[in-house]
Computed example of a mutant assay.
Amino acid sequence: RGYAGAVTAEVSRAARAAGASEVLLFTDLANRTSNGLYLRIGYRPVRDFAVHTFTAPENG
C-alpha cells in the first residue's frame, strides 16, 4: 500500500528540512523492493560493508 515508503520519504524530507546534511539508510542488498524505493525517493548507494563480532571462547 506504500505506507512504509511514504513514511520513509517524509521522515527523510523532514530531516533535511531540519538541517541534516545527510540521511543514511542501512539496507539489505538482497531486498530489491526496498532498495528500488530508496532510489526512487532520492537515495543513492554509497558503500557495501559488513560488521563482524568476535567473542572469546568461554573458559572451563
Rank of each mutant, 00 (worst) to 15 (best):
E10V: 12
N59S: 13
Y3L: 14
A50T: 11
L25V: 09
A50M: 12
V23E: 00
V46E: 08
H52E: 12
D28L: 02
V23T: 02
L39P: 01
A4R: 01
A9S: 12
A50R: 13
A15Q: 08
A4P: 04
A6W: 03
T53F: 14
G19H: 05
A15K: 09
G2K: 00
I41L: 06
V46L: 10
G2Q: 03
L29D: 15
E58D: 13
I41Y: 00
V11L: 14
A56L: 15
Y38T: 08
S21A: 14
T33H: 13
F26D: 09
S21L: 13
A50P: 00
S12F: 01
G42F: 04
R13M: 05
T33A: 15
S21E: 11
T8C: 09
R13T: 08
F54S: 08
T27L: 09
G2Y: 02
E58M: 10
I41H: 05
R47W: 00
E10R: 15
L24D: 07
I41R: 01
V7L: 14
S21P: 12
T33W: 09
R32Q: 12
D48V: 12
A50K: 08
L37V: 13
V23R: 00
T8R: 03
P45C: 01
G2C: 04
F26Y: 14
E10A: 15
F26T: 06
V46F: 03
